[in-house]
């Protein structure tokens, strides 16, 4: 029982950054924009959030800065792919590569007085147990003894789900992702919706990075994100573009590492590499299923116009 509780607590803590990044990417992709730059936006969010937290002495300032930086990077992607109608895959990859390099560069000189950030101790988020709730068996420590950014997710995830699935602007967002021509004919500003959705995704990716550098592995180390941005993108497919399922997926993806280390420490003999492979294997299974069965694909909500640039003048 104690093992379940502790693994669950770690899964939530480790999965939080994945939830932020995946929920952001879900909104972006729902509008038909594929942004493979999540990793780059996350790592830029991580380094700037930590630098801002160190400079201001306030971790919350870091989160805001990380979010803004993520949003600015997404804006670059939006400009390239929506206005210039460039290839979304190429632009996203460029964002990841540029973000990684720029973050390393900034990490060497964003400290006080231009010093490197590496090895510096700065403000960070600590767990804030919620009275009474954190004493609940099993779920108490996992859900109610976490940091502020995790609690914020309790609001963000339902809000995003409700917005996308149940509101008129949410319907407009989905329409743009399904059929931009139809949406345009309905009087929806396709470009505006896509810009907003892409920037929103960037802001959440930036906050995801901030959670890593301010709470999960406090401090700045190069390659801090370690491929988590890519996991978030896999997670979007795994969750079939539904924020609620993204939470489950993030718990699985985030928890599996913790679990495999726990099992090793407890002395079981399941090969670690096998466990590490599981989430990716499941993603491939989901991918195969939704590609193979067209009907299921629509039911599960893959946006039909995902990855396609929209041009008003173009006849189809």
């Amino acid at each position: 029982m104690e093992l379940v509780t502790s693994v669950l607590a770690i899964a939530v803590f480790a999965g939080a950054s994945l939830v932020y990044a995946a929920v952001g990417e879900i909104v972006t992709e729902r509008a038909g924009v594929l942004n493979l730059g999540v990793e780059g936006m996350m790592i830029m969010g991580a380094v700037t959030a930590f630098a801002a937290a160190v400079a201001s002495g306030n971790a919350m300032v870091g989160v805001v800065v990380g979010g803004v930086v993520g949003g600015i990077m997404a804006l670059v992607h939006a400009f390239a792919t929506i206005t210039l109608r460039a290839d979304q895959v190429v632009s996203g990859l460029a964002l990841t590569l540029a973000g990684g390099g720029l973050a390393s560069f900034l990490g060497q000189r964003l400290g006080p007085g231009g010093a490197p950030l590496v090895g510096m101790v700065g403000p960070r988020f600590h767990g804030v147990p919620i009275p009474w709730l954190s004493d609940l068996p099993v779920v108490g420590p996992a859900l109610f003894d976490q940091d502020v950014l995790v609690y914020l997710l309790f609001l963000v995830v339902p809000a995003v789900w409700f917005f996308v699935a149940r509101t008129r602007p949410g319907l407009a967002l989905r329409a743009v992702g399904e059929s931009p021509q139809t949406a345009d004919a309905m009087g929806i500003g396709v470009y505006r919706v896509r810009y907003l959705a892409t920037v929103f995704g960037g802001v959440l990716a930036g906050i995801a990075g901030a959670h890593l550098s301010l709470a999960y592995t406090p401090g700045w180390t190069e390659h801090l994100t370690g491929g988590r941005g890519w996991i978030a993108i896999a997670l979007v497919i795994f969750a079939t573009w539904d924020p609620r399922r993204a939470v489950l997926g993030a718990l699985l993806f985030g928890g599996v590492n913790a679990i495999q280390f726990r099992l090793q420490a407890e002395g079981t003999t399941i090969p670690a590499s096998l466990l590490n492979m599981m989430p990716y294997l499941l993603t491939i299974v989901v991918l195969v299923v939704i590609t193979r069965f067209e009907a299921l694909r629509h039911r599960l909500g893959a946006p039909a116009a995902l990855g396609l640039a929209y041009d008003r003048e173009e006849r189809t």
């Binding site: 480790a14 890593l212 390659h223 988590r228 590492n257 280390f261 420490a265 407890e266 590499s273």
Partner: peptide
């Protein structure tokens, strides 16, 4: 002993250490 299968992986190294502490 817990194997991380990486020389350089800040999150993995932290998670492995925490698993050992929990054990």
């Amino acid at each position: 002993v817990v194997w991380t299968n990486t020389w350089f992986g800040p999150p993995e190294e932290k998670e492995a250490a925490e698993a050992l502490l929990a054990a």
